[in-house]
Write a protein that binds this DNA or RNA. Structure first.
Lengths: 192, 192
DNA sequence: GTCTATAAGAGGATAGAC
DNA sequence: GTCTATCCTCTTATAGAC
């Protein structure tokens, strides 16, 4: 019961973070969205930063599940796997479930960087993606002149790319078209 | 004299916006950075949002100058021009002079969307880039299956791409390497 | 136009009863 | 663990003297 209440809180936080970002999200909104008093939030989580960290952990866990499933698909090449996990991230963003954190907020960053649960998951995910990246580079499917670090950062950034929300707001394309287009521009570039 | 004072204010705002973003920048910091009292700021500019709009206008004016210079270079193709203006944007970001605004803040967005000076410049820039985009697509230099809107949004987004600051923080690459790499991933993709 | 001082309000976090 | 009520700090913006 406590667990499901906390799940509900984190689910609300996740959605609000995706919708408005960390700074614009207020603890009053979270409490109202969950349907409890603000003070009760603090019985479950120590701070707004901790709440954001829990939401990120939830997303990282889902990403790790996705990568594990893709790893088991033996008919897939490493480039296919990278595209598939990118597709999952774009679809998650499209569904309004990809929390967006500020790139440089100091208070939040220091909380995240000292949060072992978060760091552990982030490193496990980075390691797995790193293996796919070097694998795809060795097979020639990915540009081998790009440092693996650049590829990794690019994929993480594309998972939160504001281009998706601009296209969504424009309303001229279906969700599937948006995802396909962004996969194409990310991997094949604008020159195609 | 009034003009140069206001120039100094906007220059500080521009730098602070690039460094910390709109929400993290405070009017106290701006006043301290310029070296005047906070109340004096409000004799020049009505609000924090107006200040951000002025900083954006300054950047858009510089972008328009860059595009005009590139338009006059007759030996360049449209794709070369698009790459050159993207390069300028990345170098501006590297120099800590590209203001970063939140993608979805409502108060700021409504100020910007009702600011004629801002809107006018944004549309003039978009129009010019739009001509280059369709030109490059017609000559086959740019993927003609991509809607011009997608290309335009992608270029705007890459001008503020967080990947640049991640690579800069990492410290493993020179500024020139970072810019070349991001131009490459943007136009040629990760597959190369 | 610049300053000091302060209003006004938002938002994170807590006290203390139940 | 939940609530109401409140604290406290930060930040935007303004008042009013010079």
């Amino acid at each position: 019961m406590l667990r499901s209440r906390e799940d509900a809180i984190v689910a609300s936080v996740n959605r609000l973070l995706a919708e408005k970002g960390f700074e614009a999200m207020t603890m009053d909104e979270v409490a109202a969205d969950v349907g409890i008093a603000k003070a009760s939030l603090y019985k479950h989580f120590a701070s707004k930063e901790q709440l954001a960290a829990e939401a990120m952990i939830r997303v990282l866990d889902r990403a790790l599940e996705v990568t594990e499933t893709l790893q088991r698909e033996e008919r897939l090449g490493d480039l296919d796997r990278l595209k598939a996990v990118t597709r999952w991230a774009l679809e998650t963003q499209l569904a309004g479930e990809m929390p967006s954190l500020p790139a440089q907020d100091s208070a939040l960053r220091s909380t995240l960087m000292s949060h072992n649960g978060y760091l552990d998951r982030l490193m496990r995910l980075s390691d797995r993606l790193g293996l796919w990246i070097t694998g795809a580079q060795e097979s020639g499917a990915l540009n081998a002149r790009l440092p693996a670090e650049v590829v990794l950062y690019t994929l993480f950034a594309r998972a939160c790319d504001p281009v998706l929300s601009l296209l969504k707001i424009g309303g001229n394309y279906s969700d599937a078209q948006i995802v396909d287009t962004l996969i194409s521009t990310c991997f094949d570039g604008l020159t195609g």
